[in-house]
Computed example of a mutant assay.
Amino acid sequence: MTPVPPSRADRSSPGEVLRAGPLEIHATARQAFVNGARITLGSRAFDLLLMLAEAAGRVVSHDEIQARVWPNRHVSETNLRVQVSTLRRALGEARHVVSTVPDRGYAFTPFGQHAPEPDDAPVPGDHVVHVVDDEADMRDALEGLLMASGWRVRTYGSVGAFQEALTAQTAGCLILDVSLPGENGLELQRRLLALGLSLPIVFLSGRSNIPIAVEAMKAGAIEFLTKPAAGEDILAAVARAMALALSERPQSPA
């Protein structure tokens, strides 16, 4: 399917305007609006948004973003993922126009279209979304959301309960609360890495904490979401996490 670029329209104010659903990007004025309300974006965040919008659905690689948005310094993949996550939060209702394409880069996806993704692959029966959260209501809500979207789900009330069920064959991905009684989410992430277990992690946190988010994503987390996270954001993050889990799955001998 050929990507359709965001629409352009002349306005009384100078400069080009790019529109996608409730989002308007005023290129010359360097302003962005969602449903008519101006959103606050830093200079680099605006450059990133404008670059993706101008690419009109084409996947933009890390190297391309580096060259245009941060031309004079190196930005790690972890740092870029944090920047993209922060941009999505700032976009609010329009956050889904910025898509992550695993192993390729990022894309601007106009409303009503699907983000460019790798070819779909069946999810093996042993690949499960493991949910670790000490709040029963949160576990139930996540389980309902995920099962309604077709995912297999197992829930755990603590790190200890998850570890009791953990084996070398445990596969899939993990939705992990940061603040847990006893061993917390970051400590579990470090333990899994030390054990050599590859379970892509989506973190949930009761509050926004950039240093913790950077630490989690530097260690390989797929996403760091602040509660209450939108269901669409959780499902999108789980889809990316499971795609990574499947890509790392050992291949059976022919």
Rank of each mutant, 00 (worst) to 15 (best):
L80G: 14
P5F: 10
L235Q: 15
V101Y: 09
L18A: 02
R104P: 02
L80V: 07
Q83P: 01
V84F: 01
E183K: 15
E93L: 07
S205M: 10
L174I: 13
G196W: 08
E187T: 04
P228E: 04
R152E: 06
S198R: 07
L50T: 06
Q31K: 11
V69R: 02
A243H: 08
L180R: 11
Y156Q: 12
P228I: 09
L174M: 03
A236S: 11
G150W: 10
N209D: 15
V84A: 02
A37Y: 09
V202R: 02
P211W: 02
R95D: 14
V128D: 11
V75N: 06
Q163G: 05
M147D: 13
L192Y: 05
P228N: 09
G112L: 10
G21V: 13
R44M: 01
L142T: 03
A45L: 09
P181M: 14
Q163F: 01
G105I: 09
D103C: 07
V69Q: 06
L188G: 09
A107Q: 07
L23G: 11
E24N: 14
P6D: 11
I222C: 07
G157R: 09
E187S: 08
Q83T: 07
T28I: 04
L41G: 04
A29Q: 13
R30Y: 01
W151M: 03
S13C: 01
M147Y: 09
P116R: 10
I39R: 02
E77Y: 15
R81D: 15
E64F: 00
V69S: 06
E187H: 04
P228S: 08
V153P: 05
D126A: 12
A94D: 12
G105P: 08
F108D: 00
R89H: 11
H96T: 04
E135T: 11
D103I: 01
V69A: 06
Q31A: 07
P211L: 03
K218Y: 03
A107S: 13
R11H: 09
K227G: 13
R11P: 00
D133A: 01
Q251V: 12
E164L: 15
D63E: 05
V34Y: 13
A53E: 05
L180A: 07
F162T: 03
A254N: 00
Q66G: 06
A221N: 12
P5E: 08
D177R: 06
P102A: 05
G172R: 04
G21L: 14
V132H: 00
R11Q: 11
A213Y: 00
R88Q: 13
S99R: 07
W70R: 02
G206V: 10
E24D: 15
S149G: 01
Q83R: 08
L235F: 05
P5L: 11
L204V: 00
A216S: 14
R152T: 03
K227H: 02
V202F: 04
D177P: 06
F46C: 02
L142M: 14
T40P: 00
R240Y: 01
R38P: 00
D137W: 00
